[in-house]
Amino acid sequence: MFNKELEVTLHKASTDQMKQKPDQSNLGFGQIFTDHMFTMRWTRQDGWHKAAIEPYDNFIVDPAAMVFHYGQAIFEGMKAYRGKDDQIFLFRPADNLNRMNQSAVRMCMPRFPQDRVLQALRAMVYLDQEWVPGTEGASLYIRPTMIASEPALGLRPAEEYIFFIICCPVGAYYAEGFSPTKIYVEDEFVRAVPGGVGNAKTAGNYAASLKAQLNAHDKGYTQVLWLDAIEHRYVEEVGTSNIFFLIEGELITPPLEGSILPGITRDSVLQLARDWGYQVSERRITIDEVLAAGKSGALKESFGTGTAAVISPVGEFCYKEQCVQINGGAAGDLAKRLYDELQAIQFGYQEDPHKWRVRVG
């Protein structure tokens, strides 16, 4: 249940509530937050209500809130870009909000009115537009989130929820920037199982990945590559990204079979690669095939895709002490072309034939 005529109120931050803008040359990722946030509430009786753009602040949640006990929490990640002629743009925001509603259905949470939320998001970004960085490669990261707020114990879907959106100016996601990352192939832990919640962007998926992520870091690797939960053979995705392989002219990415997040950047890359005439395959691929292609030289490139890093080239995989270097450890031509193309579209410096870009204001 939701109110299609949901009204959004605006409470601007006062001068003393506004924060000092950060140094754009040292933004990091996810540490500094803007002056405003968007919130709204849902109850079974009233549907979505109390929608407001308001000063960024804490909100009170009961210790018995069901999110703490049963894990009903979903979120999204998108960005705003300061581009051509100082305009602010969003990239495929409706697709992110649609995916969030799909996550809500899977987690037994209420769907929200996407059009009204997108309107509120655009208004909030416009209000905080001075927070959108102007330095190369930087952007404003946007985090919509929904949590179960009903104070009750007992395993069932909650009957009260809080939806909120916060924003933070960000630089490069990886310290390496566009330099290739080293990835450890996880062969003990698993990320998701068929029939589970791997295709939902729910908080528990990320909590479950932390142990393997820490182990990989301890071994000197930036990220984890997950294998399937049944046979531990088929490649699924990287900890924060979908994964691609360029093997002898074929661009391969694992198919969406319920245990992989349907990435917006993944979908954009598939479309661009098809536009450029590449042979594109969404098919199952084993880690043995990847390693064999790497050893023979058939594996020309590999890269991850996601909102945070956009395109993240992979320079090395390590699996059961077998390490394979890709393209001499350097970023490949296709990864660089995709990164440049997506950034040019996102920042408004290039034509947008697929109508992915949305202007703010």
Rank of each mutant, 00 (worst) to 15 (best):
L10V: 13
H11S: 12
T15Q: 14
D16C: 08
Q17V: 06
Q17N: 04
M18D: 00
K19N: 09
K21Q: 12
P22W: 12
Q24Y: 13
Q24A: 13
S25N: 12
F29V: 11
F29K: 09
Q31M: 09
Q31Y: 03
I32E: 06
F33L: 12
T34L: 06
T39V: 15
D46L: 13
W48T: 10
K50Q: 06
A52Q: 12
Y56N: 10
D57F: 00
F59P: 01
V61F: 02
D62G: 03
F68K: 10
G71Y: 04
Q72T: 12
A73R: 01
I74D: 03
F75K: 04
Y81V: 12
G83V: 06
K84D: 13
I88Q: 14
L90G: 08
R92W: 02
N98S: 14
N98M: 10
N101G: 13
N101A: 12
Q102F: 01
S103I: 04
A104I: 06
C108Y: 07
M109R: 04
P110C: 06
R111V: 14
R111Q: 15
F112R: 10
V117R: 01
L118M: 08
Q119R: 06
A120G: 14
A123Q: 09
Y126W: 11
E130W: 00
V132I: 07
P133V: 08
R143L: 10
S149Y: 00
E150N: 09
G154H: 09
G154D: 09
P157L: 07
E159Y: 01
Y161D: 02
F163C: 08
C168S: 15
V170W: 00
E176I: 03
S179H: 09
P194F: 11
P194S: 11
G195D: 05
G196P: 00
V197A: 12
N205I: 09
Y206P: 03
S209L: 14
L210N: 05
A212I: 04
Q213D: 05
Q213K: 11
L214M: 13
N215Y: 05
N215M: 10
A216Q: 08
H217N: 13
D218A: 14
K219N: 08
G220A: 03
T222H: 11
T222K: 06
L227C: 01
E231Q: 15
V238S: 02
L246E: 07
E248V: 03
E250I: 11
I252G: 08
T253C: 04
T253D: 01
G258A: 05
P262S: 11
D267M: 14
S268H: 05
V269W: 03
V269H: 06
L270V: 10
L272G: 04
R274K: 15
W276I: 03
Y278D: 07
Q279E: 14
R283K: 15
R284K: 12
I285Y: 00
D288Q: 11
E289D: 15
K295L: 10
S296K: 07
G297C: 15
E301T: 07
E301A: 07
T305N: 00
G306H: 08
A308H: 02
P313V: 12
F317Y: 15
C318Q: 10
Y319K: 04
Q322H: 05
Q322M: 03
C323I: 02
Q325P: 00
N327D: 07
G328V: 05
A331Y: 07
A331D: 04
G332P: 08
L334D: 02
Y339V: 06
Q343P: 00
P353G: 05
H354A: 15
W356K: 03
R357E: 02
G361Y: 04
